[in-house]
């Protein structure tokens, strides 16, 4: 899908173009409206929320591959694509094995972000719904690598950046807004 225009609950219109990160103010109503519009348009939508986002009853591997394999991506292609993505998040073989062996509900916050980022990049043509707090409190290196991974995988996708009100600055935090 190359473009989609949807109406927000406040009556405003939001035009999504493939390959562009479209900004929108975060609110539960906006999030629901955007999700519903993407769902109605038949678009596979992956959320990168501030919390949650993974299915607790599935393993990490199943969470990563569910959307892609359900929509017909063969396992061999998935394995090959995953192998290419792991270096982007500085995951070596040992860290990857440890990540896969961890039950989903016991993942650390940064590991949860890694899984969500890998899933977002792995699933072909999926739209993204990114909460601006997704990278809040993330390790600075992971935040930088995650943003680079998203930028690299963005072409051809619809993506919405849900902007929350600015958080008070925290000591040691190196958060920066992504480029529009």
């Amino acid at each position: 899908m190359s473009a989609l225009t949807l109406t927000l609950p406040d009556g405003g219109a939001l035009a999504l173009c493939a390959g562009q990160l479209t900004q929108c103010a975060w609110s539960p109503a906006n999030q629901t409206a955007i999700s519903a519009a993407l769902l109605a348009a038949g678009q596979v939508t992956l959320a990168l929320p501030a919390q949650g986002g993974l299915l607790s009853t599935l393993s990490v591997a199943d969470n990563l591959t569910l959307a892609a394999s359900y929509h017909g991506m063969p396992w061999a292609e998935l394995d090959a694509a995953l192998a290419l993505l792991l270096p982007a998040l500085a995951l070596d073989a040992a860290a990857w094995r440890a990540l896969l062996a961890t039950p989903t509900e016991q993942l650390s916050a940064d590991d949860r972000r890694r899984v969500l980022l890998l899933r977002a990049a792995l699933t072909p043509a999926a739209a993204w719904l990114i909460d601006s707090d997704f990278f809040a409190d993330a390790h600075p290196d992971l935040a930088a690598r995650g943003q680079a991974l998203l930028a690299q995988a963005l072409p051809g996708r619809l993506a919405v950046w849900l902007t929350r009100p600015a958080r008070p600055a925290q000591p040691g935090a190196e958060w920066k807004e992504p480029p529009p």
């Binding site: 999700s35 596979v44 939508t45 299915l55 009853t57 569910l66 959307a67 699933t123």
Partner: peptide
């Protein structure tokens, strides 16, 4: 309990959003 947890945690909607 598994099905209920999916409903209560909003994971049911997550699946639907992924067109699963």
């Amino acid at each position: 309990a598994e099905v209920a947890a999916l409903r209560v945690h909003g994971e049911w909607r997550t699946l639907a959003a992924m067109q699963v």
